[in-house]
């Protein structure tokens, strides 16, 4: 199976940056990013019955604001998968002027959704990410992304048949990811570890309401890194000796984090929260495009410098952790 081989194994986290226009601006300013991951497309279509038994809605609105809250140490978000018709994504991808590879991403309500979405995006992307792990819902919403393990297996099997391109499965740190990785490892090329953590809850003491309109939100940022570090290492134990690669996605804020993740078992890396948001001083402030470029390039330059000084390569570091006891 074709594994994704990027010039630089560093990409944006799915849902951060989100749109190709933003990637294009970053590229114009010289960002060192191996590929751009699009925000998840989903089972929504301009056509009432996109295929007979499917019955997709035209759109899914997602939560009203507030959709993010920063506690001073952890960022929570509850976008809840706002989704427009997939045809609109196809048009955007067709018109893309991006030079770097594009990684498609899709979410579904049922296993079959993934395969159909992947089929529709396939001509325009270089790899596919399957989001089977978003912890966020609209307030009161019931059925989104509450998959049983067997359904994830079915979704991945069907998706595998729908594309010859690299298939990346984004696992949840909040489920039994070891069992899921065991089950689907023969059909996936990469595991992304992982989605946001939790979800968590932040209550406003004056109104007695959750700050997030969706009540709960997936947690991200540097504080999540040890949790995801263990997840990477656990999943590495599952895929060791196979061709399956691990993509670390959780709280990367310094170049040292990339080295640490590679030692834990990852060979690709996603930056999201810390690349787009400056979290210094207990407040969250959006970074300007040129600041995102500098942040990302500094990460990669730091990694290169370390590898040179230590006379090693990322390949050699992958899974090199020496466990105690």
């Amino acid at each position: 199976m074709p594994k994704l081989d990027l010039e630089i194994p560093l990409v944006n986290g799915c849902g951060t940056g989100s749109y190709l226009g933003i990637a294009y601006e970053l590229e114009k300013m010289g960002i060192k990013l191996g590929a751009f991951v699009m925000k998840s497309g989903g089972p929504c279509s301009e056509i009432a019955n996109v295929r007979e038994e499917y019955r997709w809605e035209k759109e899914k609105k997602g939560n009203p604001n507030p959709t993010v809250v920063y506690t001073g140490s952890i960022l929570l978000n509850s976008m809840a998968l706002p989704t427009h018709p997939i045809e609109s994504w196809v048009r955007e991808l067709k018109n893309s002027e991006l030079k770097m590879p594009i990684i498609g991403s899709v979410w579904g309500n049922k296993p079959e959704d993934y395969a159909l979405l992947i089929e529709m995006l396939d001509p325009y992307v270089d790899a596919h990410q399957m989001n089977v792990s978003c912890p966020n819902k609209e307030a009161g919403e019931k059925s989104v992304m509450e998959f049983m393990t067997a359904q994830i297996l079915a979704a991945v099997e069907l998706a595998r048949e729908a594309t010859k391109k690299p298939l990346m499965v984004k696992l949840s740190p909040n489920e039994n990811y070891v069992a899921i990785a065991e089950l689907v490892k023969h059909h996936a090329d990469h595991f992304v570890c992982g989605n946001t953590v939790g979800p968590g809850l932040v209550i406003d003491i004056y109104s007695r309401r959750p700050v997030l309109a969706g009540n709960y939100g997936g947690m991200s940022g540097p504080a999540m890194k040890p949790k995801i570090m263990k997840m990477v290492n656990d999943v590495y134990e599952v895929v060791k000796g196979t061709d399956v690669g691990i993509v670390a996605s959780g709280g990367i804020s310094r170049w040292e984090d990339i080295i640490e993740y590679s030692i834990a078992g990852a060979s690709m890396f996603e930056v999201g929260t810390c690349a787009f948001i400056d979290l210094k001083g207990g407040t969250a402030r959006g970074r300007k495009t040129e600041e995102i470029v500098k942040f990302t390039n500094d990460l990669w330059n730091g990694v290169q410098k370390f590898l040179k000084e230590e006379n090693t390569t990322l390949d050699k570091l992958v899974g090199s952790m020496v466990k105690n006891g």
Partner: peptide, 21 residues
């Protein structure tokens, strides 16, 4: 606008994010 901190892309026009750029 949604996040207002540059991460979600909602307020982008072409590639410029109104909230951060």
């Amino acid at each position: 606008m949604k996040c207002a901190v540059g991460i979600c892309g909602s307020c982008s026009f072409s590639g410029k994010r109104v909230c951060a750029d």
